[in-house]
Amino acid sequence: MTEIWYGLTKAMELIISFDPEVMEIAARTLRIAGTSCLLASLISLPLASLIHFRRFHGKRVLINIIQTLFSVPTVIVGLFVFVLLSRAGPLGELGILFTPAAMVIGQMILITPILLGLTISALSGVSKEVVETATSLGASGFQLVLLVLREARYAVLAALILGFGRALSELGVAMMVGGNIRGFTRVMTTALSLATTRGELEMALALGIILLFLALVINIVLNRLQQRR
């Protein structure tokens, strides 16, 4: 027990003193997760709008598949991206395995279903009457999509934040295609895992506290957004 208390006090020291290594890892984590989320949303928002506004066969099935992929295990995405980027793989020539770029690709694949699914349901929350009012006021198809996205902005933003949270806290992809290289691809989850196995309890606890704190911030922002409609 004393060991844990000691670890906790040390961890707080690391955080309060802005320990360079801890801060560097935290900053990299935010950067990589942020990039993944940004790129995934650039794909997801137009794609979700397309799925929402177009009528086609198998739409229901497609949405079901997307929703199933919300909970795809991170290690499966990690494995998939690993195979894709490994030297013998189809994209092996890029030589980006064990780089932040590989992590971004993996995290994008991981969170795109969440962004897609939640954006589609956010758009469905905009009433038919609003869509019709805009149509009769002379909105073109594209202008209509922009308006509906704007009407659903809080719900869409909530989707983005949830995706960001998932990218931030996942371990499988970061470990398998990032490789936990110190000063290069080491992020909070991989660093935490390593520190624990090494017995560096104060480091592990410090990272854990920061991760939890970020989760708390995300949750508060989400709650705020869900109260605004």
Partner: peptide, 20 residues
């Protein structure tokens, strides 16, 4: 159809205001 629609306006029974 869009060009023609833009020469008209429609007031609905229940006004729908946009969230702005």
């Amino acid at each position: 159809r869009l060009e023609i629609r833009r020469r008209m306006s429609f007031i609905h029974q229940k006004p729908q205001v946009f969230n702005s």
